[in-house]
Simulated assay, not measured.
Amino acid sequence: MTALFISDLHLDDSRPHITSLFEHYLAGDEVRQADALYILGDLVEAWVGDDDDAKLPNRIARATTAVRDAGVPVYFIVGNRDFLLGETYAKRAGMTLIEDGAVHDLYGTPTLLMHGDVLCTDDVAYQQLRRQLRSPEWKAQVLAMPLEARRTLAAKARAESRSYTSGADETLMDVNADAVAQAMHNAGVTHLIHGHTHRPAIHHFQLDGQTAERIVLGDWYEQGSVLRVGPEGSQLRTISD
């Protein structure tokens, strides 16, 4: 009995070995024998729309659909890189979209599931931009653009993001402790799993007089990172070819 969690794969044509690692992992026994696979956002480096006819979205869809067809549900929360991913692609890829901030029962433990970027409240500029980009009006405007124009826009956004993060204070890009506590308090849970910050760790702290746990998933830039959750507890580990 195991639920598996991954996030921040940032799959991209520039790192084909990571895409191959993702496909290999999803085809393996650990995933095919799991109770569920959760992908908590930033599956790709950039998502330009469900109508993208590039090879990478097709490869991802084949891999995740095979997991679903093996009887393992695949749950997906959009991240800051793939927030334009919608029901059309999710259906094609055999994934079930769940809300950022959903609570799932993991072997008797209600657990808050998030991508994690909304918890980085110290980065005020990012949060303002996030609200703009997540608005229905902005998304509709962008998705109405020709596919090639969206690809150009995504490349520009990625370059700007790299420039911003390279010069930003590291503490701004981590979660805010008060935001974490408030999110967990509002959800009525003492367990949280999220990604986004690329700082894999299991944190224990006090929340409302109880011991709480926050698990941060790792990224897949150089190797894979997987969280296994079962009745006996949780384990973060790395995977490679």
Rank of each mutant, 00 (worst) to 15 (best):
L217A: 03
L40Y: 08
R59P: 05
T111R: 01
G230Q: 06
H194T: 03
H185K: 15
R59L: 09
A34P: 07
L21P: 01
R134F: 07
G116K: 08
Y89L: 05
L192C: 13
R32N: 13
R130M: 06
A212S: 08
E160D: 14
V103T: 12
D8F: 02
S161K: 11
G28M: 10
H191P: 02
L26H: 04
A27S: 12
V124G: 11
T165C: 13
V229E: 02
H185D: 15
A3V: 15
L112S: 07
I239W: 08
M173Y: 08
A159H: 12
P73D: 12
N186P: 02
V226C: 05
D69W: 03
A46S: 15
S135I: 01
E232R: 10
L133T: 12
K55D: 15
K55F: 13
D35G: 13
R162I: 06
Q127V: 01
S225G: 14
L147N: 00
S234T: 12
A159G: 06
G108N: 11
R214I: 04
H104N: 09
A177K: 14
Q127S: 02
I98F: 08
G86I: 03
H10R: 04
Q206M: 15
E170R: 15
A179F: 10
P136Q: 11
H191T: 13
F205D: 06
P16V: 10
L37R: 04
P16E: 08
C120N: 04
